[in-house]
């Protein structure tokens, strides 16, 4: 019981901390430039967060089980290419989306196959699928420029044009998906088992959990929602670009770690990851608004990741141990 109390204390501390970080970032940027809290910028931030939210939240579930997926950026890129190709072929939005989601699901299942059945370490297995999906995306897009342009004009209606309160449909879809993932994590067997596997894989197996199946499902979920992120990206930018997801694996990891999810697995929170994603997008957008050159981004991201990791292990040490 005492341990449980400590864990819930940790949860409270992490929630306050992550919201505090987001709040202070918003405050600082708003003080520097009023434009930052203007409606256009807020809409822009939320719109841009859609792919990262989809990827980040599903990766959280996977990381709670102690696994890692580096292929998400590749899946986002390949999905944007496939979606664009399908649209140009004129098969309609619904079928294009279904085909793309099926493809994402397949890559997720392949990741699961490599990790679970072939027992390849997640880092290496998903590194291979990352290489495969970016390579495939590049092969499918026109040689030279590598971008698929000239999509139908309506494509932006999903993730760019305002639908309700100036926010696009994709944003509301994301809210539903995130809500679903939160319920999965907190209320379902899948979420509980995921935490059990991350906490102690052998113990989980011995207590009768089908760890292989669970991990496989988690990889499939990540693949599916990453490709939904790719569709949103293609719709937002109105183009198919195999490299559009470059670095998303890193962003997802930063958001997850910022949200206090343990990178060795066992505990974490999908909801806090959403705050982590918003912190990252606010940082990037804020730097843009106050006119800092984009080449500062990499440094800032690196420092945020190192900072988040340190806070994480300090909180863990101080409260749990």
């Amino acid at each position: 019981m005492r341990v449980l109390g400590k864990i819930s204390l940790k949860t409270t501390v992490m929630t306050i901390y992550v919201l505090g970080v987001l709040g202070s970032i918003v405050l600082v940027f708003s003080l520097i430039s009023v434009k930052f809290i203007g409606v256009p910028n807020i809409v822009n931030v939320l719109r841009q967060s859609v792919p990262a939210l989809l990827v980040g939240t599903s990766v959280t579930l996977l990381m709670i089980s102690g696994n890692i997926d580096l292929s998400v950026g590749g899946i986002v890129g390949l999905s944007s290419v496939i979606y664009a190709i399908c649209l140009k072929a004129g098969i309609g939005y619904l079928w294009a989306a279904i085909l793309t989601l099926l493809l994402g699901l397949t890559i997720g299942l392949i990741n699961g196959l490599l990790v679970v059945k072939m027992r390849i370490v997640p880092v290496i297995a998903t590194l291979a699928t990352m290489s495969l999906s970016i390579g495939l995306g590049k092969l499918l897009s026109p040689d030279g420029i590598g971008l698929i342009k000239g999509l139908p004009e309506d494509v932006i209606k999903f993730a760019r044009t305002g639908f309700l309160l100036k926010l696009p449909i994709a944003f509301y879809v994301t809210v539903i998906v995130v809500g679903m993932l939160v319920v999965i994590q907190k209320k379902t067997v899948l979420g509980k088992y995921s935490a059990a596997i991350g906490g102690n894989k052998v113990a989980a197996e011995l207590s009768g959990i089908n760890t292989k199946l669970i991990i496989w499902i988690l990889y499939a979920i990540v693949g599916l929602f990453s490709s939904l992120g790719g569709i949103a990206r293609a719709s937002l930018l109105s183009l198919g670009d195999p490299t559009t997801g470059t670095g998303m694996e890193m962003d997802a990891m930063i958001a997850v770690v910022l949200g206090g999810t343990s990178y060795t697995g066992g505990e974490g929170s999908v909801l806090r990851t959403t705050v982590g994603v918003l912190i990252l997008t606010c940082l990037t957008a804020g730097m843009q608004v106050i006119g800092i050159a984009p080449y500062w981004q990499s440094l800032v991201k690196g420092m945020v990741l190192i900072f988040a990791v340190t806070i994480n292990s300090l909180v863990k040490e101080k409260i749990i141990e």
Binding site: A128, T129, I134, G135, L136, K138, L139, D143, P242
Partner: peptide, 11 residues
């Protein structure tokens, strides 16, 4: 195409 190298690497 150079992109083929990435596929080869993966496989």
């Amino acid at each position: 195409q150079p992109a083929m190298q990435m596929l080869v690497k993966g496989f």
